[in-house]
Structure formats: C-alpha cells, structure tokens
Amino acid sequence: MPAKVHTEKQSMSQSTSTPVLRTHNLAKTFALGFFRKKVHAVRDVSLEVKKGEIFGLLGPNGAGKTTTLKVLMGLIKPTAGSAEVFGRPAGHIVAKAQLGYLPESPYFYDYLTSLEFLVLVGELCGLRRRESRLRAEKLLERVELSHAANLALRRYSKGMLQRVGLAQALINNPQLVVLDEPLTGLDPLGRKQLRELIAELRNEGKTVVLSSHILSDVEALADRVAILVKGRMVASGKLSELLDTRVINTEITISSPPEALVKALAAHDITPRLVGDVAHFTLEQESATDEVVDLIRTHGARLMALIPRKESLEDVVVRQAAVVDAQSESPNAQTPNAKTGGA
C-alpha cells in the first residue's frame, strides 16, 4: 500500500517523538456468561495519535470504541496485538500519570461531594492534599460547578456528573485527555461549553481523543478520525480525505410553482412534494442543476433554496458498515480497506 507508506513517512518528518497513543493489530475477545460465549469486541485496530491533535474515534454502538479506549487505559488486557501510551505499554503507571480519562456515562461515589471527590482523585495522582484542593476548586470553576462544590454527588444530574467527570480527568494537568462519549447526556449549552473546552485543551497543546457515535460532534472538532465498525477499523485519516467531496444530490425548494412548471419537471422525472404552496424536490444528478434552475426561472417561480448535499461522516459510516456486513457474510472475510489513510 504505497499511500500508507507515504503518509507514515510524512508523519515521521513532522514529529520524531513517539506517538502519544498507538495500537497495533489490537484485538480483544471476551468470554462471557456461564458458557463462556466468545464475543469479539475488537478484532483488528491499528491506530496512532500524534501529539497535539484532536482524534475522533467513531462508530455505531457496539463497534468497539469503548473497549479500545479501555485497553489503552489499562482497564482491559488485549487478547492480541499491542497498545501503547506515551511509548509504554497501556496501563503503565508512568503513562497513566500523564493522562486523564473520562469514562462513558461516569458515576462516582454517592456520599462524597464533588470537591471531596476531586481532592481524592488529585491525591491518587500524587498531589498533596493542599495542592489537590486548590486544583479541584479551580477545575470546578472551569466546568461551572463551583456552586455545587459541597453538594453530595448523588444529588447531581447527569449533565453535572459529566462535568465532574471532565474535571477529574483534568486534575493532573494531563498531556493526553481521553473522553469516551463526552457529549452524551449534555444539553445544548453543555455541548457548546464542552466543545469550547476541548478547543481550549488543544490550544494548550494537549492531545485529545474522543469517541462518539454522534458524528456531527466529532466532525466539528477532530483533526483526524478512525472509524470502527464491528470491532474493525474500516477507515482512518483526515476528515477531508475520508469524505467524498462530490455532491451526492441537491435539495431544491421553490414557492408557488405554476402548473406548467410541475409538468415540465415531470418530464425530467421530478415530482415535487407540495407543502402549502411550497414545493420540495431532490435532484440526484448534479449536472441537471443548471437546466432545472433555468426551468424554474422561465416559469416565473421563486427559487427559495438550493442545497448541494455532500457526503457526511454519517454516510461514510453507513457505507463502511455495509461493506463489513457484506464481508462478514463471505467466509474469507478480510479487513475492508476501502480508505485507510495514514493512521
């Protein structure tokens, strides 16, 4: 695969330091339940995250995102392959000292206040009590929870717990911040604040890895993404590389179309959907756009909107999921490599 070699060389020249995160052919199989039924949570994931980038781990539910992250956090031991953090095996105490992790839908001690909890977490990171307390107070301010600092965590709402989770991930001023589904459970304002915070982290030179099944969240934030489907990495690279830049279709909205126009459109196999006196239709071929617009204008109808729709990350995931499905049905299933850029 010459393309891959090329990008790897590029990344070598960009930074000679070890990648912040690296997995190589990572696989994890769980034996669950009484009959030790085998579940392949992660089959083959090789990825690399460089210093200072925001990396998105994408995929539908059950794709293996959380398992991959847990392996990297040292919570789960890989069945095959390797996982490294700051050049050390995942779970190594030196690696853990430089990272902060927000688990999926985090839950903490009911009977502690958020301040007490953060002080505890700070102490586990090796901070002295006094320093831990200072940082905890600052972080509570940063996630806008100062007012609830002395409230027991069992009284917190889900969104508030998510903020506490973020604060605890940052208590040791980590170089790498790993966030598992950080935007889930947040209200629109909370999501906006979190996006801003992630951007701030990037400006501070930190590396951020976040997973999500909500693609638009990652689309707006991540420099690079990896897409997991059924435990396999089906694509990775810059968003601009992964997304097909061609226009898929064009959505057109016009107001009060005369009868003659509707007939003329029908000749082009277009049947507009009428809502009141507004008509919507989708143009599948980009080349027909000019012609259709001319028709609309000559019939004296008003063009309200013309939206060319390009491939979104959502489309990529759906496309890749279909490929994986098709391959897993064939006996000699191999990792689909439709678009594996420099990981």
Binding site: G74, L75, S105, L124
Partner: peptide, 14 residues
C-alpha cells in the same frame, strides 16, 4: 457495579 473503578484505576495507581 457503579463504574467508579473506571475512574480510579486509570489514575497513576497500581
């Protein structure tokens, strides 16, 4: 059960 272990064990502790 409460998943608190996911928060504590990734901290630099054995």
């Amino acid at each position: 059960e409460r998943k608190t272990v996911y928060t504590l064990l990734p901290k630099p502790i054995h």
